[in-house]
Design a protein around this nucleic acid. Sequence first.
RNA 1: GCCACCUUAGCUCAGUGGUAGAGCGGCGCUUUCGUAAAGCGCAGGUCCAGGGUUCGAAUCCCUGAGGUGGCUCCA
Length: 669
Amino acid sequence: MRITLPDGTIREYDQTVTGANVAAEIGAGLAKAAIGAKINGQLCDLNQSIDHDSTLAIVTKPRLDKKGKTRGDMDPDALYLLRHSCAHVMAEAIQRLWPQAILAYGPPLDNGFYYDIALDTPISSDDFEAIEIEMNKIIEENRPFTRYEMSPEEGLAKLTEEGNKYKIDNAQRALDGGSETLSWYVTGAQGCWEDLCMGAHVPSTGTIPAFKVMSIASSYWHGDVTSDRFQRIYGTAFFGHGDLDDHLELLEQAKQRDHRVIGQKLGLFVIDELVGQGLVLWKPKGALVRSLLQDFLQAELLRRGYQVVYTPHIGKIDLYKTSGHFPYYQDSQFPPIQMQDHVSGGEEQYLLKPMNCPHHVRIYASEPHSYRNLPVRLAEFGTVYRFEQSGELTGMTRVRGFTQDDAHIFCTQDQVKEEFAATVELTQFVFNTFGFEDVSIRLSLRDPDSDKYAGDPKLWDRAERELREVLSDMQIPYTQELGEAAFYGPKVDFVVKDVIGRSWQLGTVQLDYNLPKRFELEYVGADNATHQPVMIHRAPFGSMERFMAILIEHYNGAFPLWLAPEQVRVLPISDKFLGYAKEVSRALSSEGLRVHIDDANERVNAKIKVAQDDKVPYMLVVGGRDAEAGTVSVRDRLRGDLGPIQLPEFMRSVQVELSTRGQSVVEVV
RNA sequence: GCCACCUUAGCUCAGUGGUAGAGCGGCGCUUUCGUAAAGCGCAGGUCCAGGGUUCGAAUCCCUGAGGUGGCUCCA
């Protein structure tokens, strides 16, 4: 039997060995650090036996520095083992405290782990300390994680006797997924606490040096609202206390970067309960940024052959019945507005528009079209209203009224790929302009087993094939998600993470054969016959609200000069130089710059502190020396004091920075 | 919508049944200052709302609203 190690060396054995055996042979240091094995790419226990030719990598705990921090990068496999094991320890601790707790499922996550537990007594964050104390006891006992296996029949019989329906279900799923046996992990020797679990685990509870119970939430069995409800307890674990401290510190910083915190601090927007849940009030500074974003994109659209349209905020309900939105999304729409005609007594119903497409479709349909004037690209910053579930509302990222940077392209079948590629390119251009680097592109396809999708499956196949082709032609890496498509067509989504790691769809491009059919749209082809156009829905920002939220977090509130609500603040050293400050301010304003004077009766240190907190890109400190020499002393919010510069020169470099959207910045020599 | 938690001055928060507090912000006065918070003073409260328990409730209980974290959903 040959075992190949990561460095390519091969070791020969004539009887079964374990990762632990091999590690011990290689060296005492490795044996001591070893916590698991990766056999043929599969993460396993360290004492998993190997009985045929395999590749083997020993998973080790990291070396720590003096502060208890991992040296170098953390190994995701090692953390996975650690956290999976810590989930067991937490579950045992919880069952010690609440013996009636029924375990369901406890996996590791990217940044921690959770355990889903069925328990009538509500666990609250006040209980975390008690849970952690129990966990520490278990860890101090340093009990080994011991695996044993049973045949499916034996194992299911054992589980049936124990009567935990969630574990029976887990076992059944494991067997359906191809497992030949069922495995348990005992924390310690026979008779100790155990859990049905496929593994793998660290050798013993003592291997868990740093952990924390983080939060509690609720969840449903298999994510099914009508099914059993669990208490989901989240925790995290690290190999070093320093790593854990860093993690907690990072979470604290992320909190400060949250768009809701910054939006409040900088006065960008407010959500007022008197106005309504999920309804954003854009305050002057936020509104200014929004209008700059809109100007930027609209100029880009006009350059690319789009035409701007405006449509009303409501429409007759039949419009949305025809489009399919009303029946399909009835639950998540504001209820229809009932109108009664006083004379005829006839009734009409209107809907706050949940989508802009039906209105745009009717603009297209208002005049005949020839293949010669396609594609028609209709763009509108259109505000829509959706009755999102109250528990879903989150700052500006998930709201009930929002403005899409919407457009609909009506084109011939032959034009689809080119138009689609152009919109993907536009979206990438937009994301590049704002310096987003961590954007993942998701091809959202239908789930062929679901009946929620409208239209002919053949058209779906074609649409999905075309999107794949466009993305691969453009050499864009993407992931495919079954069941994520819109009900009318597949789409390409641009997904960005917020500071606390939640994913949000920003830009989207969607292909639609369905609406043109439902509305019987036509154009006259070169053959003088009528044909049906294809529609592309697209929104590079997605919604102004969500884009703004992500932008706030992306920039940590420090908008680049071209977007900053206040671009320059003049800080006179004392009242005596207010006159010169006003001169400077007037000169900058007349160049179109957004400038204010801090005329507070304060020292310049205090003014700088305030301006820094307000994230103003440039502070111009002006005193007697500047008034005499016609200079301003420039302070950059990031680079600090840049020294004095002639005012006209400052204005020139600022204009360059503006026109390049931050590619070039003010330099003082 | 579901579960847990939270809601006290403009903001951030302390206050576990006995007279409502701090810092920042605001206003006033002093200071007139050269690169991350000068000093002093003053004003500011329906303790989310409604009901209950109690001699007495910001504090305990119930109902509701809003927020936070998840779950579910997301055209």
